[in-house]
Structures are given as C-alpha cells and as structure tokens.
Amino acid sequence: MSQGPPPPLRVTDLTVRFAGLVALDAVSLTVEPGSIHALIGPNGAGKSTCFNVLSGVCRPASGSVRLGERELTRLAPHRIAALGVARTFQNIVTTEGTVADNLMLGRHGLSRAGFAATALRLPHAVREQRAHRERARAFAGLTGLGALFDTPVGLLSYGDRKRVELARALCLEPRLLLLDEPVAGMNGAERERMAGVVRTVRAELGLSVLLVEHDMGLVMRLADEVTVLDFGRRIAGGAPADVRTDPEVVRVYLGSPAAPAAPAAPAVSAPSGAGAVERPGDASARARGAAAPAPGTERGDSA
C-alpha cells in the first residue's frame, strides 16, 4: 500500500448548519501532502464538526472537501475510509476485546473474508486474516503497543487506549490521518510519547496529519501549519510562529481588555439571530448571547 506522496486535502468554503445555527461558516484550509496541520480554537469553535464532515459522519450545507481529485462530502463514511482517510475520536471509542481485535477492525476495509468463508474457516480466509494480523502487529509495535497486543482493551490505561485508537487508525493504511485531541487527558510524559509517535508515523508512513489539540505547546512544536477557528470561522492560519503572535488569536485565547465588544461583534453575531441556542452534539457549547459581551472572562479558562 505504499504509493507516492499523499494527495492534498483541500477544504473550500465549508459551511455546516445545525437547525439554524452555523457550526462552520465558510471555512477553507489545505493540508499539504506529508505535513502536520493543526486545527485549534476554543471549545465550540467547530473543530470536531469539521472532523465529522471530513470523515463523512456529518453532511455540510455547502462547500467542498477534496482529497486529491475526489470529492468527499457526498460519500458515506466507509467509502471515505477506503480512500485512505482515518480518524481517531476525542472520547476513546474502542470495541470490546483485545488490542488485536481493535486493530484488526482497522483492517476491515482492506480484507475480504465474508460470513461464509469465515464461518467455515476456509483456507484463503484464514490465510488472509493471518497476514492482516501480522500487519496489525507491526502497527502495534510502531505505536508502542507490541507487548499489549493480546491484552483486552478494557484492562489498559487511558494513555494506552488512546494509542490503541491511533494504531487502529493506522491499520487503515491511511494517507490522511485525522487526530481529534490525541493527547487530551494525558500527563506530560504520555504527551511527549504521543507526539513522538505522531512524528515517527509521519516520517515512516509518509502520510498527512490533521490534528485538533488544545495543548498549544505541543501544537507549536509538532505542527507545520496551524489553522485557528473561532465560532465556526477561520480567524487565522499559517506557520505556528506567525499564528502565535497573531493579534486575533491572542484575543480569542486570552481575551483583550483593550477592545472588548467592538471587534468581537462581527465574529459572534454573524451566525444567527437565535442568541442562546445550544450547538447540538457539542457538549461544551456555550450560550452565545452570554459569552459574547465578555469574551475575556470565559475564554481565558479554555485557553
């Protein structure tokens, strides 16, 4: 499955509405082949919604997502996965069973053994599954799970389960890897280890990575390019060093006592007139009307 450089991912004017509420408003970004691209922003900025569109879980109202020449927005999730887009989840989603079972699930689209062949243990199905198991074992080794390959996932630590998700995504042989908060909830050592794994994976497998992360230090060290979202809009983008000093980003993350309501107004009032509608599916959705006048107080916490 080792082909040339991964195709670029081009997101153009992506808009997602949930019952009159704009979760993503004409967002554009490009993930260059082989790069690590970070998507950041305060809670409720639309990062996870963006991931859901990219992986086909959620349909956009308008806009396009192209992986190379293929348009992804009309495809079912399993078709997008077959094109080489794999993702992890913010909250760990593993199935019952061992690490091997979970990683083998990642091989689903790449293997063929159906009900009849599996039920009767036909030789070709057994052979196929054995080969895929070895490949899955290789990915377990790459992510540091080699010794835990046959351990039930339920017995693993939080950090290990996060890495199971990463390894399972790698098992799809992706060309674009979407990581949704890969180090959330980890301690310092685990974070560094995860960052190392992501770097290794990118270097060895030559894939592109798009990641959502709140740990700014990690994002600045890891990413080649950063896109900043706030209230569904792209407010800044570019190299990490440039983004860090962008006044709009500083305002969003730290709040700006010098310019309270006026600059915030266009970004906040644009989405809809329904002030306090909560964003469906987003546990941390803020009541917009309340957040708007005092961005400084509430956003300081999330940064």
């Binding site: 992986s55 086909g56 879980v57 079912a76 999730p77 399993h78 997008i80 996965a81 077959a82 794999a86 993702r87 989840f89 989603v93 593993t94 199935t95 019952e96 069973g97 079972d101 083998m104 699930l105 990642g106 689903h108 689209g109 790449l110 399972r168 799809l172």
Partner: peptide
C-alpha cells in the same frame, strides 16, 4: 469484529470502513 463495532459505536464502525 465488524458486528461488535456496530454494536459498540456505529460512528466509529463506519469511520473504520464498516458499511
């Protein structure tokens, strides 16, 4: 494995390539 994935999380199963 695919059936168990559908049982445990449909979204995760779909994203991992299970129709």
């Amino acid at each position: 494995r695919a059936l168990a994935a559908v049982r445990d999380s449909e979204v995760a199963a779909a994203v991992l390539g299970v129709p």
